[in-house]
Amino acid sequence: MNQSTKKDNSQANARIISSILTAPELAEIDHEISHAPYRSAVAIDALKIVQKHHRWVSDESLTGLADYLDMSTAELEGIATFYSLIYRKPVGEKVISLCDSVTCWIKGYAQLEKHISRQLGVGLGETTADNRYTFLPAPCLGACDRAPVMMVGEETHLDLTPDKINQILETPILKSPAPKNPVPKSPISKSDGGQPE
């Protein structure tokens, strides 16, 4: 008698997936899974792990990840597109998140936004031609006493002034190697208002 028991296709999937998700990513994801009640419970952590390694989540990664987590691509897409910090479109080497919430707005957000746009040559939601920066607005970054505030990558910059921004943006950025197979622009935006979300 043959028997197929309830799904445990993770083994078989692992082979296919390893071509999309790298061993270190899988190790990190497995660690999350080790203390979750079921695989798909780590969906958000896993998306963040993939994004940490690739800067964004491509369609291929999304599909591979969904298989790995025993969930459907549609469901994972629903999760990925809900959260503002999961990028379903490519972003530059560093994301500049300029706080646009109330205190920063009072303290001169509008001028700084214009200033950064001018410096980078791109508007909000866009990536510089050299692919170094993606410029995004951010909700309150929790440092209102030092407003205006922005984050560049993981670093928070306080008490911003145009001069200070110039300094920050001129600091050479550690170039991480470009992805080997540059992934095509995702066709994901199904609704208008197309910032990477």
Partner: peptide, 11 residues
């Protein structure tokens, strides 16, 4: 989560 604009105490 501290995302309420103007709030910076938990941090």
């Amino acid at each position: 989560d501290e995302m309420e604009p103007g709030t910076f105490k938990d941090r």
